[in-house]
Design a binder for these strands. Structure first.
Lengths: 354, 354
DNA sequence: CACGGCACGGCAAACGTTTACAAGGCGGCG
DNA sequence: CGCCGCCTTGTAAACGTTTGCCGTGCCGTG
């Protein structure tokens, strides 16, 4: 006899297994499994009800780990981000979660703080927990040893049926969700142009970051296309930070006479705003300022910032959809997401000169 | 014979099990398990090395699900937050993660958006995935049916050896990390008092939120203690939002003559700042403003806000430590965390009057 | 009336671990 | 020289599922 034949009695605490349900319903474990897991193997309506009733009575919850062991599907996915306290990644995670919730997948979250060692650790841990997919929301690290190890691990993972999704530029291959940074900046420049601005300055980011190069390219491309006169003196490096943005704004002020300034990210734009404020220069009356990203702060800075929203939530959502498709072995194209301009109070319409 | 005796050959792709390691090392699965899991059961140094070598060669990764099945410890914990895109919760999650990383635990994250149904769903899912502990970073929802169901589920969980940790005021019992909101506000009032302020206004939050009541109590208690003259006219409701804060600030302006205003949260303080700015009232020269929470925006608003930092990261960290202790069946007291004042530019020192 | 097929249910193996128990070998002690 | 006990290893059961395969009974059809 099994070691607790009294199982039909105690239905108070403790967690119950399929065996308890089966016994209570007076059927075999196999049958109980079939009804609980929605198997295609037919079960009579009568026994189905008995089982359901029993399961309900015991508040039975199937053990996903056991199920995963035999089906080789854990119904979990791991997501790796650089910093979970950054709303940028928080939004992505939220999108991912909302996207996979309906299909009953769960999310492991790991925040690497850009530490290659930690990143590898976390990925390894994901493997150990048999995740069905891994999402890289973090962007590539440059450490060579890291890259090599990661690539090898990723190969094993995909060979074993694992799915990899990439939500940023990353060395790894996998289903991809793509935000076109170059185009985004170009669009902002065209927007300023439409509003009458011709003498436009640009606050750029650190030159060793891929994304800041790409965004800069978007600026120069649009300027050329529109026949704007922007030389190197129109561009200053603000290192993607608020204080850097303030200083870069100062440089521009000393150097050139502008009607508008575009910052490669919102943080620098906010810094510029602060600087202009303390210099007594009115925004947008005397000078217009625009940013890019639409971070939460953008709305609450010295003056509400006009910027372009990067659809982080949507990126997560699309990532989830890609991931689910891949798990179903459907193939799907990479998806392309675009931002939209959110107009607040920092840009004025002026009479185009020249 | 086992179905793939060729296992010793293929060490390219695919994932390997303990059996493969054992075969390659020429030992039994049990022995391999003992060395890989660091069992206390003795193994000779020689065989230990053989096994390690084999595991290394195959890049063996133990399957945590299988291990969990037999040890009844999944080495996972689930955390429930209200909104993962809110840095407040992001910081908490980061602290938690950092705290459990060393002990090799992983984190399931779920963001409920304050939806009772979703919240129950997620908790149920955590159970199904056999988490060892659940952390409630979200605060209590008032829905009665929800409360009842949750309580019942929680009881089953703890009865089964699960651990519950609570990081905010919540109906659930469990190990608790506690930030004293009342004391925090009182401390801010005392701070303003030290800086010479006697006529102080207060921007309060919605009265149906426990936390805003508690914070208000902190204000009145401190005012009384210091012999400040604060009647109802000194208090306005800003609903915890930026626009609400701006409006409430307006009311106060019409009603009383103040030297300082304390907001129950930073968002309202920022709103007040904006309002004062557009009314041409200088901060801090003509009026001082202080907030509470130290959200990221606080530093970048119209004027850098003096506020009190709620140690969210530390809350997560302490939660992790509590959780690990409970899992080890050590008992631990609830922990009490305190905030610290961060002085920026929005509060002036003045000559105390009267 | 016989037989084929289908609907339904059970048996048992399998997933990858851990671990209680047993067994073998060897050294030490009486 | 015999026996006890320890050190090391192996055998096998167990964790909670799913699922291939088989058996039974019933119904329909020829």
């Amino acid at each position: 006899m099994t070691r607790d034949t009294d199982s039909a009695v105690k239905k108070g605490t403790e967690s119950h297994s399929l065996r308890h349900v089966a016994e209570l319903a007076g059927v075999s474990v196999a049958t109980a499994s079939r009804v609980m897991s929605g198997s295609s193997h037919p079960v009579s309506e009568q026994t189905r009800e008995k089982v359901l009733e029993a399961a309900n009575q015991l508040s039975f919850q199937p053990n996903r780990l056991a199920r995963a062991l035999v089906t080789a599907r854990s119904h979990t996915v791991g997501v790796l981000v650089h910093d979970i306290s950054d709303p940028y990644f928080g939004e992505i995670v939220k999108g991912l979660e909302d996207g996979i919730h309906a299909e009953d997948y769960r999310l492991f979250v790991a925040s690497s703080e850009r530490d290659p060692q930690k990143e590898l650790d976390y990925v390894r841990a994901f493997f150990a927990h048999q995740v069905d997919a891994i999402v890289f929301a973090a962007s590539s690290l440059t450490d060579a040893a890291y890259a090599e190890t990661l690539e090898a691990m990723a190969k094993r993972f995909t060979d074993g049926g694992g799915v990899i999704v990439v939500l940023s530029d990353h060395l790894l291959r996998g289903a991809k969700v793509w935000f076109d940074n170059k185009r985004a900046v170009s669009e902002m420049v065209r927007y300023l142009h439409r509003r009458g601005h011709r003498r436009i300055g640009y606050l750029t980011g650190p030159s060793d970051l891929e994304v800041s190069l790409v965004r800069l390219a978007g600026f120069t491309a649009a300027a050329e296309e529109l026949g704007l006169d922007v030389g190197p003196e129109n561009i200053a490096n603000g290192h993607f930070t608020a204080v850097g943005g303030g200083e870069a704004m100062g440089e521009l002020l000393d150097r050139v006479d502008l009607t508008a300034v575009l910052a490669a990210n919102d943080l620098m734009a906010i810094g510029a705003l602060r600087r202009l404020h303390s210099a007594g220069i009115g925004v947008p009356d005397e000078l217009s300022v625009a940013g890019l990203d639409d971070i939460p702060i953008a709305e609450y800075g010295p003056v509400p910032l006009t910027t372009m929203r990067v659809p982080t939530y949507q990126i997560g959502l699309e990532g989830a959809s890609l991931l689910l498709k891949a798990l179903r072995k459907e193939d799907a194209d990479d998806v392309h997401v675009t931002g939209e301009i959110v107009e607040r109070d920092s840009v004025a319409t002026i009479e185009p000169e020249q």
